[in-house]
Amino acid sequence: MKQSYQEIAKKHCPKENVLINAIIAFISGGVMGIIAQFLIDGYVMWLDISTKEATVCMLVTLIFLSCLFTSLGFFDKWVNFCKCGLIIPITGFAHATMSAALEFRKEGLVTGIGMNMLKLSGAVIIFGVVSSFVFSLIRMVVGLL
């Protein structure tokens, strides 16, 4: 019996190494967490600020470094290797925004960077806002009970 094209194509499509990718993402994501914790502790120690303020400084540092490394042209290789280990933390958001800004910078400040910078990361902002609204509603309802 003749096989359908879909069956033939499926047979020759390679499987992605899901398990290895997950392990790499788990380890690199964990390392990111450790670095972030070191930063928080460091800021608390050196700058004599509260943990809450140090957390903000840590986020700013990671965002700055992701943007800098993206602009220097090697961060995409790290992201490609670490996958979700670098995409899920704030580094992924900064990387996506920065790469789009770099890509469109030649099309002008407003029409290029302004209109396209959030091409990839715009969705994160929109759904971040929507989900935080939903969760705060849930929290409010639970608080009233």
């Binding site: 992605e16 990718n21 042209g73 996506a96 790469s99 990839l120």
Partner: peptide, 12 residues
């Protein structure tokens, strides 16, 4: 995607 974006690509 933007060229500098390093999201993982599939083997195909």
């Amino acid at each position: 995607y933007p060229v500098e974006y390093g999201g993982p690509k599939r083997k195909t």
